[in-house]
Structure formats: C-alpha cells, structure tokens
Simulated assay, not measured.
Amino acid sequence: MTSTASSRQRVAVIGLGGIGGAAAGALTHAGRHDVIACGRRPLERMRVDLPDESVEVAMTVLTDPADASPVDWVLLTTKAQDTDGAGAWLRALCGPDTTVAVMQNGIDHAERIASYAGGAEALPVIVYYNGERIADDHVRMRHISDADIALPDTDTAQAFIDLLEGTPIQAVRAPDFTARQWQKLLINIVVNPVTALTRQRQGVLQREDIQTLTTALLEEAAAVAEAEGAGLPASVAADTQRLVLTFPHDAGSSMYFDALAGRRLEAEALTGAVVRAGARHGIPTPMNGAMLALLRALSDGMGT
C-alpha cells in the first residue's frame, strides 16, 4: 500500500464500539477520505466527543457484507474473539491493494486475519486511546498516553499515519514495536483475567494472595517475551507488577465488563498468546495455562 497525505482513499471500519466508533467518527469529521462503517444496525448520524470538541457526523453504515466492495483501507476494531464474526466483512472489503489495520489486542495480528483477508497486507496496531461507546450513536475518545496508537517502523505504517492526518488520533512509528506489544500484553494478562474471574474491579489486585498469583503470571510471560526477542528489560515482570498496582481501584477492564455482560472473553488473544508462544519455545507456562483453562470455561458459558 502506497499513500500520500493528499490522496483521497476509501476506508472501511469494521466495528462501531468505542475504538471503531471513535476512529470512524474522527476520519469522517476530518473529511479527507470516503469512510464507511460496517455494523449490525443502520445508523445515519453519530455524535463523537473528540478530545477538543464534540461533533455530529453523518455516517455511511453498511449492515450486510453483500453490499460491500474492496477498499483501500480496512480498520478492524472488533475484539479479537470476534474476528471470525468479521470474516465475511473482511472477504468482501479486501482486495490485492487493501491494507488491514488490525486494531486489536495481542501479538498475532497478521495470523488472526490471514484466512479472511485474501492476501491483503496486515498492519498491526497497538491502541492506547480510550474509546467509550456511550450509546449506539454516541462515542467518546480520550487521550491517555503520549501517542494514541503505535505502529511498526515501516512504510505501510507511515501510509496509515498519513491517512489519519487531520484527525486527533496521534500515531507514531515505533522501532521498539515488539517490545511495546509485549509490554501491553503483560499488563493485559494480569488485569483482564483477574478482574473477570473474580468479578471485581482493579482494587482486587491489591490483595497479597492475588499479587502472588500475578507475579507468577508475569514471570512466565517475561520469559516467553525474552524468547520471542521482545527486548524487554530483565525487571519487566516486577515493573509491570508495580505499574498495575497504581491503577485506580474502581477501574474495570474490558474482560471484566464482558464477563458481567455475558459476552465471550478475549482470552485467546491475551493469555492464550503467552501460552502458545511458550509452547513454541518449549517454555513452561503452567500458571498462565491454568488461567487460560478457567477463562475458556467461563467464556464457553457466555453468549456472543
């Protein structure tokens, strides 16, 4: 995919939750590209609370993949466990010149979409911004980091940065992209599973017995990350443990809210990624493996 900051392109956003709704709204408001959203329900307009203004934008929303055709860019913003459900959209939207920006958690972005994207290039994206879906037609975006998204240090990543010009979404090319992926994954394998399984907000992480558990989870994952060549410091497990203890006690997590709502859990992209990578390198991950078994059992009892 080649791009210039001035070229008008066709962009499809799959998923209109907090992350996708904010991206679709910001791109539509910037007016530089032709944006369609792919969702379950029709929507004519959406209110988007951006960091510096609140706007209302007219939306073009498709509800049937049969109505879609290949575009220049696909932004896949569903949760990782919903990728299969987005498969029909990916097949309809992807052509030989399409790039799929995979705006999901985990480390195996390209592999996750390979069977659906028909050879389209996958661009892994680490999302830091907070996107909150307040109503079907109302989303809010907030900056929570110096950058809203991080990308590999590639020409394709630069093309995506050019695509976002004129929006408040701040993107950076990160030479340490693999390290960033694993840093975020380590946080996620602690905060998400523990809050989901205990049905408690992040204050539960302050318990000494829970800290014993999370230390073990992190030490296993840190060993796997080293084998994967992530380039993280030797202190990453302890650093991550200290970091999560600073999070607000009343904050939830995406997996916590999914568990409360009876939705399937993002276990495979988070804890599952550690267990699979450990198996590839012959590194035992018994604590994460036990956590994954519990999460799978809980998720199997959920809806969609």
Results as ranks from 00 to 15, higher is better:
residue 127 V to T: 15
residue 194 V to G: 05
residue 151 L to C: 00
residue 20 G to I: 01
residue 101 A to C: 08
residue 33 H to D: 08
residue 66 A to E: 14
residue 13 V to E: 09
residue 226 E to D: 15
residue 301 G to S: 09
residue 163 L to W: 06
residue 183 Q to L: 13
residue 110 A to T: 08
residue 207 R to D: 06
residue 75 L to R: 01
residue 285 T to H: 08
residue 134 I to Y: 14
residue 13 V to N: 07
residue 133 R to N: 03
residue 110 A to F: 09
residue 77 T to V: 06
residue 152 P to W: 05
residue 116 Y to F: 13
residue 83 T to Q: 11
residue 62 L to N: 14
residue 138 H to N: 10
residue 123 L to C: 07
residue 245 L to Q: 07
residue 89 W to R: 07
residue 226 E to N: 03
residue 269 A to I: 03
residue 76 L to C: 13
residue 141 M to I: 00
residue 302 M to K: 14
residue 137 D to G: 02
residue 239 D to V: 02
residue 216 A to V: 12
residue 69 S to V: 07
residue 101 A to Q: 05
residue 123 L to Q: 01
residue 108 D to S: 07
residue 189 I to G: 00
residue 96 P to V: 12
residue 24 A to T: 05
residue 22 A to S: 15
residue 233 P to M: 12
residue 87 G to H: 05
residue 111 E to V: 06
residue 5 A to S: 14
residue 54 S to N: 04
residue 8 R to L: 15
residue 2 T to K: 06
residue 173 R to S: 11
residue 230 A to L: 09
residue 87 G to A: 13
residue 99 T to K: 07
residue 58 A to P: 13
residue 62 L to W: 04
residue 42 P to G: 03
residue 40 R to K: 13
residue 7 S to A: 15
residue 142 R to S: 15
residue 160 F to Y: 08
residue 21 G to A: 06
residue 104 Q to N: 11
residue 95 G to T: 15
residue 57 V to M: 09
residue 100 V to I: 14
residue 53 E to C: 10
residue 83 T to C: 09
residue 76 L to G: 00
residue 164 L to D: 04
residue 174 A to S: 11
residue 177 F to R: 03
residue 193 P to A: 07
residue 53 E to Y: 05
residue 57 V to Y: 11
residue 266 E to G: 00
residue 119 G to D: 09
residue 27 L to Y: 04
residue 256 Y to P: 03
residue 153 D to N: 06
residue 48 V to E: 12
residue 226 E to I: 09
residue 93 L to Y: 01
residue 36 I to Y: 02
residue 42 P to L: 02
residue 149 I to Y: 00
residue 15 G to R: 03
residue 110 A to N: 10
residue 141 M to Y: 10
residue 237 A to K: 02
residue 244 V to W: 09
residue 157 A to P: 03
residue 78 T to M: 12
residue 100 V to F: 12
residue 219 E to R: 12
residue 13 V to A: 05
residue 244 V to E: 07
residue 109 H to S: 13
residue 24 A to I: 08
residue 179 A to E: 07
residue 174 A to M: 12
residue 276 R to S: 08
residue 304 T to Q: 14
residue 260 L to R: 09
residue 53 E to Q: 06
residue 117 A to E: 02
residue 65 P to C: 12
residue 248 P to T: 10
